[in-house]
Design a protein around this nucleic acid. Structure first.
Lengths: 205, 205
DNA sequence: GTCTATATCGAGATAGAC
DNA sequence: GTCTATCTCGATATAGAC
């Protein structure tokens, strides 16, 4: 990443404002980089992951990685967009199911399924400070989250309803990475999460 | 941090095995370093925070920071231990309330109160990969978490009960840092969290 | 698509004066 | 307790050959 007056520049999407929700089809070499990057981000964090680590993981040199992506920031952005595209599919599918409880039901099951399936990477994608800053300034992502929350909220309004969906989101994202549940198989975890989140929504407010 | 054969060495507690749950009283200069470090960890992650950033934040030079702590790892460890000591007080207090529902009730309210109060730093303390690795090899921390989970579990056993407390933990930790709730005042957030977590425990399994 | 080689900078860390 | 000065290394990044 380029430099700042004092430290290295904070990551922004300024250089890549054109990138939206439709990441072009990456080459095989690019996909290898992105897969290695995601694994390493999960283990060491974005800042703790160097281009050298990615190169070693793939079994090539740093220069080969730089041939696929011009900067580290481009890699982070590409990783984020690939995951966003997955989430977009789920939200779009839920929206197609209408505006009420059915839509919410569809979204919940799709999101839980995705979160469980990709639990090794959830923390890197949603908890890493570099990723948070990047996505927080990335309008397509903000729009996607708005849509997601709209489906979850349905017709509800008010603080309690917002707290409720925030808690459900947090519970899903946090449970799949929770050390207590690290040994639990995906199917059981998914079933339990589905059950408990459904009951959270059925609770009287 | 010292180096590895290939990259810089992963953080361990090997050098400081003697440090436990009773951090010595830090000097005023040391506390300034720890406060700055915690803020910066929350904003940039542990790996993304340099000694230079800490020095700038405090208004001294790097060498002055190195006079207070011999390595960056010592700073991370000290930050973690100060927070652990806070949590330890809450767990100890809950344990004093017995072994049943009352103990759980005390612990829940204390933990929620702590999490809300310190929500700016929760992600850095529980989600940062460096912190996770450090604490995961730190026996006093593992013991503390065992005690915490024991109080939450009470007499319950079985997968569903474990999932339940994992979800409650995740919900608390995740809700306080959730962007949707960033604008919510501490008192409201605390009350809502208390209510919803209590209901989660009252649900029939 | 991958390599070797290199440039530049900031990181962690230390020595020694005040 | 803080400073200036310095060391070494790994980080991002580029040039140019194969």
């Amino acid at each position: 990443m380029p430099r700042n007056d004092r430290y290295r520049r904070a990551m922004t999407v300024a250089d890549t404002a054109a990138s939206g929700l439709h990441p072009e089809a990456y080459s095989a070499a690019q996909r290898r980089v992105l897969a290695a990057a995601l694994d390493l981000f999960a283990e060491h964090g974005v800042s703790g992951t160097s281009l050298q680590m990615m190169a070693d993981e793939i079994g090539v040199t740093k220069a080969a990685v730089y041939h696929q992506f011009r900067t580290k920031e481009q890699i982070v952005l590409a990783v984020a967009e690939v995951e966003m595209a997955r989430l977009d599919v789920a939200v779009t599918e839920a929206e197609a199911a209408g505006r009420g409880a059915e839509a919410r039901e569809v979204l919940l099951s799709r999101v839980i399924s995705m979160a469980v399936e990709r639990r090794r990477w959830v923390n890197a994608l949603s908890g890493d400070p570099v990723m948070i800053r990047l996505l927080g300034t990335h309008q397509p992502f903000l729009d996607l989250m708005d849509r997601l929350y709209s489906v979850l909220l349905g017709d509800e309004a008010g603080t309690t309803a917002v707290v409720q969906i925030a808690i459900v989101s947090a519970a899903i994202g946090g449970a799949v990475v929770h050390p207590l549940l690290a040994g639990l198989d995906d199917e059981t975890l998914e079933a339990e999460l589905l059950q408990i989140t459904r009951r959270l929504f059925d609770l009287p407010t």
